[in-house]
Design a binder for these strands. Sequence first.
DNA 1: GAGGGAATAT
DNA 2: CATATTCCCT
Length: 410
Amino acid sequence: MGSVPPELSLDFRPTFVPKTISNFLKEVSMVGNVSDKVSKVDAFVKGLEEEMRKIDAFKRELPLCMLLLNDAIVALKEESMQCVTRNVEPVLEEFIPLKNNKKETKHSEEDGASITTKKDKDPNNNNYNINKDKKNWMSSVQLWNTDDDDYRSTDHKLDTKRNDEDPFQGCKNRGSARAFMPFKPNLGLAVRKEEKEEIPVHGLTLLTPGIKNLKEESGSTGSRTSCSRAVSSSAPNAQSNFRSGPQPLAHHLQQQQQQQQTARKQRRCWSPELHRRFVNALQQLGGSQVATPKQIRELMQVDGLTNDEVKSHLQKYRLHTRRLPPSTTTPANQSVVVLGSGLWISQDQYGESSKGSSSQSGSPQGPLQLAANTGGTSTTGGDSMEDDEDAKSESYSWKSHIHKPGKDDV
DNA sequence: GAGGGAATAT
DNA sequence: CATATTCCCT
């Protein structure tokens, strides 16, 4: 951190030649190596920032300078980001449907699944015939979905706020359930650290429903998470409810303990946005095989997300992907075959709401269920992808995102 | 504690 | 069956 970029140091070395931004960009664009590219840009930005700091004292005298500098910085940063996110020597991974595992038990290392150049040989194309029809799994855009929370009770306010950055906007329901989380009456309290009702995240908010389930440390030191969550009577398994009679306290405790033992955390499903971040993080970290849960979690910057959750997600992700051999050519802008945007989404919760038929009422766009879009975006083209996120469906699955490059996918 | 893998629950 | 959580081991 200490080093001063050449642009700033007083000793002008030959390395530093002032150039216009457009020249600079031109130059950078010629650089093949992405990381070089990025570091070049970053260095430049650094210089600009330093410059800005310097003239900060004179900002009143040089307002336009400030403006220009700022403008340049922002633009370059953007550029840099883009380099990183989409160009970063994409770690090529492809999805493999678990189902077909049988066939390709192993040895499918060199599957050619990919990008463009190889069409002459792909022996196992059949393996990868993915259902091109994507039943994407997201039905909401929220970060987490859980089965538990009932949406019907939320009275969406649906105000017209639609920030582009607000992941909520697409949310079917409870889009704006920020300040107040309508919980079921019976499960009143007990919000534990993990189950914060909402967690602001970089413009993302992560909602978790009220209750995951109870789990406390039993006296026997055994349990790992000694989370003392309030024992609301409405555990998912609601066994507790049944006999809440006048029984001795000991009994009660026992029951609680049993619950704790048996009770599991409510399943939370990954929203598209969340998953997008996940994938993004993976890319930055060099692929699912090398990224570690913690790193991923930190990169994702999602509050409330636990290592375990990431780990689990990662585990599954790895199951579905295989690293592709660093393709010889690697033109740096070939797109990666990553699952575009699937996320876990809860399984039931959507359809069945008995009373508030309009359950999802909130969704601004109306209840688009299974989007009919079957068109697989042909990834080959360039870096346009990850746009299929709007499709919503009730189901989720990795396979729905597998993409087969070959035109003839059978 | 973190990571990986596997058992188990949903 | 697929996914999510938890357990076990290192």
